[in-house]
Design a protein around this nucleic acid. Structure first.
Lengths: 152, 152
DNA sequence: CGGAATCCGGTCGGATACTG
DNA sequence: CAGTATCCGACCGGATTCCG
């Protein structure tokens, strides 16, 4: 008995939402509370596949299998889960054509499009600074390793 | 024996890096490969605490305990882990003052500052559209629940 | 004070099998 | 074709303990 841990697998998970109203000033107060809306979408774009899906759908409408083939590496389970979340958030529109074999198409909503645009700023930043980051990491690791040797 | 699963806990995790060089055109090709640099920093900003730390350090330099108290909810373990990652990426500078009791201060690097600026665009987007998202979710859940009842 | 090491539960996501 | 249902390993992050 003792609460089946599969609950997270399939459950809709209503989520309490926790309003956490902002004082509209204080531009640095948004992130001091953990379960705000910011976190909600951050968890979405931070997850493993959402971004890929959004980016692909921003190019054109795609069917389930097309997405699956395009992403390559995603399991059908995670594709389904990801699409359902995006649909729930109003970022993706799901259209079922009642034919046999079924034909289901996914497209970005206007909201989803604006999100992708915003995300792109982050991508640009990353591409611009990836060398600095890589260098910093290499330097850090080199130093850490050297330190480890002296400790022996 | 069989590979201790704690490896991810403390190990430095060198990470193969997987260069995955871009063709500089194709603005929508960045995200078709999964382990690119974009993913690297996305995993960072997508994790539970990095963003909070960055935002707080953007206001002013803080000590370990100050950060811990300010964030409230973070474990000392995760604060340490998060800070080490940010330091490794060159986003945060760690300064140890050799006094007794030890005094360690953390501050954002210029690179970290530019990242925070970029992130803010995402925050603005979220605050602007949180109502749409919340409404979409409520609608989705309402519809799903209604559908579940007819199925019974 | 500022960590490091260990233990451990909960969750994320992959593999597989089955369905309309 | 487009999913749903189950099972299960891997990892993330919290709690606790110990250390310089």
């Amino acid at each position: 008995m003792k609460s089946p841990r599969h609950s997270a697998d399939t459950a809709a998970a209503p989520a309490p939402a926790s309003r956490c109203d902002y004082g509209d000033a204080d531009p640095f107060q948004w992130d001091t509370r953990e379960d705000c809306e910011v976190r909600q979408i951050l968890d979405r774009i931070g997850d493993k596949w959402s971004l890929l899906v959004i980016a692909l759908l921003d190019v054109r409408t795609l069917r389930f299998t097309e997405l699956r083939r395009e992403i390559d590496g995603i399991s059908q389970r995670m594709l389904t889960v990801t699409l359902r979340q995006l649909e729930r958030d109003g970022l993706v529109k799901r259209t079922v054509h009642p034919v046999v074999p079924p034909r289901v198409e996914y497209q970005l909503t206007p909201l989803g499009r604006t999100l992708h645009t915003t995300i792109n700023a982050l991508v640009v930043w990353t591409e611009k600074h990836q060398n600095e980051i890589a260098a910093s990491r290499a330097e850090y690791d080199r130093r850490a390793e050297a330190e480890a040797r002296t400790a022996v």
